[in-house]
């Protein structure tokens, strides 16, 4: 509200000042080259250059590549015939596009929901003081420190249908062996479970930091008014944690959308394409089938989806600042 009132007040003043504009350019020209402004520009240049080289160039190159017939030949001859949107047509009309899009959505939603809920529960748990708290919390970081390819190889043997330790354990409880990675209806769930395990440390760490920032006085005051337990969580913890939560969720979504190594290591997109995601499609088209143009088209679609979430996040954040 306050911002709109401000602009409506300043507008007439601006219009009134219009006739005097004639003298402005010279003064502003001088101001443009003032020492202060040059310094400002110099501060911006390194960052701008960095963004241009390491973000701008790859993105532009990827977009251009997706509009070309870019194959192994291109690397030697440098020739990549322009094919317009043909690669995108190939991508969207391929039988695997919609299943892999749906898998990407299920994988992302499933992973984020699991990681976040378990992460928040653990973060809240570790907020209490108890012996070995710090030690256990640092042990929790282990999955994060393991190289993903090691983690996925380990999980592949844990989830093996016949001799995997998980099925052996379930067997002692009288549960029949679950075909974790070999049944198309279970494989995606198995892959999501592993990804949840990998994502928990990140969620715990950030959420724990957020919880530490909530002043204890709020809880003390709340307790006086009868807000304890769930009520305290709902009325004190949650509202204060919201900025942290939105960061965790956004980063989580962007990380999860592009997950590649875990799925490659566990199932390689199988069984029977049950764990194909857009990232896997992009990788396989580019580095297995050597159709770099089609692979680039897949990854551009993925980037577009990530961008969508980034915009949602920025909007949500701007509203918070305004509030």
């Amino acid at each position: 509200m306050s911002t709109t009132r401000l602009t409506s007040e300043t507008a007439p003043a601006d219009r009134a000042g219009a006739p005097r504009r004639g003298t402005l350019p010279r003064r502003s020209l001088k101001r443009q080259f003032s020492k202060e402004n040059i310094t400002k520009v110099l501060f911006v240049v390194p960052a701008a250059l960095y963004i241009l080289l390491f973000f701008g160039y790859p993105v532009v190159k990827n977009i251009v590549m997706s509009l070309q017939d870019y194959t192994t030949k291109t690397f030697f001859t440098g020739e990549a015939p322009w094919v317009g949107i043909e690669n995108y047509v190939t991508v969207i009309s391929s039988n695997l596009f919609w299943p892999s899009l749906i898998n990407t959505a299920l994988f992302t939603i499933g992973s984020i929901a699991g990681q976040f809920v378990i992460g928040l529960a653990l973060a809240a748990f570790f907020k209490r003081r108890f012996p070995l708290n710090n030690f256990l919390r640092s042990m929790l970081l282990l999955p994060w420190l393991l190289p993903l390819i090691v983690a996925s190889a380990t999980w592949r043997s844990i989830l093996d249908q016949d001799s995997g330790i998980l099925n052996r354990f379930l067997g002692t409880l009288g549960i029949e062996a679950v075909p974790w990675l070999t049944d198309p209806s279970v494989a995606l769930t198995a892959v999501i479970l592993v990804n949840i395990w990998i994502g928990i440390p990140f969620n715990v760490t950030i959420l724990y930091g957020g919880l530490q920032d909530i002043p204890d006085e709020l809880y003390e005051a709340g307790a006086l008014d009868g807000a304890t337990g769930w009520k305290a969580f709902w009325h004190i913890t949650w509202p204060n944690l919201r900025p942290v939560v939105s960061v965790v969720l956004l980063l989580g979504v962007v990380y999860t959308l592009k997950v590649l190594d875990i799925i490659l290591g566990l199932t390689n997109g199988g069984p029977a394409n049950a764990t194909q995601t857009l990232a896997i499609r992009s990788y396989q088209e580019s580095f297995v089938n050597f159709e770099f143009g089609v692979g680039a088209a897949f990854s551009n679609i993925l980037i577009l989806i990530s961008l969508l979430f980034a915009i949602i996040y920025l909007r949500a954040n701007r509203r918070q600042v305004d509030e």
């Binding site: 502003s28 443009q32 402004n37 400002k40 520009v41 911006v44 240049v45 701008a48 250059l49 241009l52 080289l53």
Partner: peptide, 18 residues
């Protein structure tokens, strides 16, 4: 808007060098 323009110009001037 003018300040943004200057920045862009500065970048444009330096990019070819890089």
């Amino acid at each position: 808007r003018k300040r943004r323009l200057t920045t862009l110009l500065a970048i444009a001037a330096i990019t070819p060098l890089a």
